[in-house]
């Protein structure tokens, strides 16, 4: 049962559009799956390898702008941005890693935070390349119907999930966790920590960039304030993973479902729409106090809290 459960879940999600859901529900589903992809990417670096990034918007934005610029400047379909972003983001992540990965712990977090902000300001001030604050609009949408977008992001999510599972079970995964637990010990056990941290960063960045490229195609409009946003991208992805469960496979999926639903719910309350960040903050405090390992990571504790005792 445990083995086929993921297949069943994916199959169940895959048939959802056939049920004739409203466009809005489909939109929420697409956002949820997209956020779970970004969450899984962040989790690889922050959860398994222990390098907490506050700047994942940088990679999301670079992926998004790869798509946007290909369309806007070169006149080719923005979908080419997905394969192209792999290369662009990988090179960009190598460069960022070279600078920031020599920092440890909170200093790495601060370094990545700065990277995200630097990119936003840069994108705003390079109108020749990015159209600045006007943003880039994809005028010819591929499909009006959302079904295809749904299947594209679902495919990406499944592939990323399988990739993360494969990586974590392999030599790479063991090295990532060893680095997280004690970098000096890992180094003295023959692990080239700089090299493996760079791999973790590049993998994480490329996946995030793919989600960014998808975002451009799906939303049809990007501007620097949206795709390089500190609070709406970099912080939200951390929340997705924290709420769901750090260093778990299903954590980012569960976390993104909760975060996206919560954001939509709060947005629908009149007068409180703009206050969703306040709610996120409160939620984060509650999670850290009561479920420090996230929902998936603290399942035994959750069961106890809810009174479903197993054998205690």
């Amino acid at each position: 049962m445990k083995k086929i459960a993921p297949t069943l879940i994916v199959a169940a999600i895959a048939v959802l559009p056939l049920l004739g859901l409203s466009t809005y529900i489909l939109h929420v589903l697409i956002l949820t799956i997209m956020w779970s992809v970004i969450g899984m990417a962040w989790n690889l670096l922050g959860g398994f390898c222990g390098q907490v990034s506050f700047g994942h918007a940088a990679f999301f934005g670079v992926g998004a702008y790869t798509s946007g610029i290909l369309y806007n400047k070169f006149g080719i379909s923005a979908w080419w941005g997905m394969p192209a972003s792999i290369g662009v983001v990988a090179v960009f992540a190598l460069f960022i890693g070279f600078i920031t990965l020599r920092l440890r712990g909170p200093f790495f977090a601060l370094g990545t935070l700065a990277v995200g902000v630097i990119l936003r300001v840069t994108a705003e001030n390079l109108p020749d390349v990015t159209e600045g604050n006007l943003g880039i609009m994809i005028r010819e949408r591929s499909w009006v119907d959302k079904t295809w977008y749904f299947y594209i992001i679902l495919t990406l999510a499944v592939l990323v999930f399988l990739l993360v599972k494969k990586v974590v079970g392999s030599r790479l995964g063991y090295y990532f966790v060893a680095i997280r637990e004690d970098q000096d010990a890992a180094e003295s056990l023959g692990i080239n920590t700089t090299y493996y941290k760079t791999i973790a960063l590049c993998l994480s960045a490329v996946i995030t960039g793919l989600a960014g490229a998808f975002y451009t195609n799906y939303m049809g409009y990007i501007d620097p304030k949206v795709v390089f946003a500190l609070h709406d991208i970099s912080i939200v992805v951390i929340m997705v993973v924290m709420v769901g469960g750090v260093a778990t496979f299903w954590g980012p999926v569960v976390g993104s479902a909760i975060m996206v639903l919560l954001a939509e719910l709060i947005r629908s309350i009149p007068m409180l729409g703009a206050a969703h960040l306040t709610f996120f903050g409160v939620l984060l405090i509650v999670i850290i106090i009561f479920l420090p390992n996230g929902i998936i990571g603290d399942i035994p504790k959750l069961k106890r809290l809810l009174g479903i005792r197993k054998n205690l």
């Binding site: 966790v177 060893a178 010990a185 890992a186 056990l189 023959g190």
Partner: peptide, 28 residues
């Protein structure tokens, strides 16, 4: 050389203040 390069050449060490990879099992 860096510690990981020294280790790869066949020279390993332990630490006085133990540094286990805490949240991993002994086997892992």
């Amino acid at each position: 050389l860096k510690p990981h390069q020294v280790c790869a050449r066949g020279l390993a060490r332990t630490f006085q203040v133990v540094k286990p990879l805490q949240r991993m099992s002994v086997l892992d």
